[in-house]
Design a protein around this nucleic acid. Structure first.
Length: 230
DNA sequence: GACCAGGCACATC
DNA sequence: GATGTGCATGGT
């Protein structure tokens, strides 16, 4: 198999190089504050980002994209404001659960999270109802500058379709694949995840239509499963 | 009208 | 432990 125009023999790094060369920097996460990123991470669950933006703009327009203001907001009213993002009753509850944690444990002060070790913070986020591994890691990476690689549906589909990991696999196994092959670098994790989403939107839909995919000649290397032993 | 989108919790077997 | 289902809007 050829290695032309790849700057690394490691397939995981090779994919990043290829995507960055093709698509360039993605400037993620599209949010102006840490709190906006946290809210967006919940609103975007199984939802198109364009719809999330509508909901975020509603909150902004009402001056509610700030922890204390949102914490004081009635749940039904919150649900109506985030309606364009879908699952609005569920997500209103999830946002309230996040705020409840933030205020009960940290008095609503995002700066107070800075001293909490990453793994402890991750466990705390995962203990909040409505925050699973992807949402937790999105918050950790994009809002709180912690080097956790974010795995999403696109990541799973792309890696499986290009033979980099053998199904069945779970979130932790896929994340571990990236953690083992990459340095713990915030900028790299940030850009890589964004690039995978960029690729997935155009070339890696559920129904295959992969012509012109910039990864089509990446060597297919099935990874041994990660060290998730029980 | 069908499919899809930057998940997660819960019920059931 | 694995699998199925509900949650919902809006663009293509």
């Amino acid at each position: 198999m050829s290695r032309q125009q790849t700057s690394s023999q490691d397939p995981i790094r090779c994919i990043f190089d290829r995507l960055f060369k093709r698509f360039g920097p993605q400037h993620w996460w599209p949010g102006q504050t840490r709190f906006e990123v946290m809210v967006g991470a919940i609103l975007t669950q199984n939802t198109n980002w364009a719809n999330v933006e509508k909901a975020i703009n509603n909150l902004k327009a009402h001056g509610l994209l700030e922890p204390r203001a949102l914490y004081k907001l009635d749940k039904d009213r919150l649900a109506m404001l985030i309606r364009p993002a879908g699952y609005y009753n569920i997500k209103a509850g999830r946002l309230r659960a996040l705020l409840e944690w933030l205020f009960t444990r940290y008095k609503g002060d995002l700066d107070a999270l800075a001293n909490v070790p990453t793994e402890s913070l991750r466990q705390q986020l995962l203990s909040i109802s409505g925050i699973g591994p992807e949402t937790a890691d999105s918050i950790l990476l994009y809002a709180l500058d912690r080097p956790k690689f974010v795995v999403d549906a696109y990541t799973a589909r792309i890696m499986a379709r290009h033979g980099l990991i053998e199904p069945p696999f779970d979130y932790d196994q896929l994340q571990d694949l990236f953690h083992r092959h990459l340095p713990a670098d915030l900028g790299l994790y940030n850009e890589y995840h964004a690039l995978l989403v960029r690729l997935g939107k155009q070339y890696c839909r559920p129904s295959p239509r992969c012509q012109g995919c910039p990864l089509e000649d990446i060597p297919h290397v099935i990874e041994p499963q990660g060290s998730v032993d029980q």
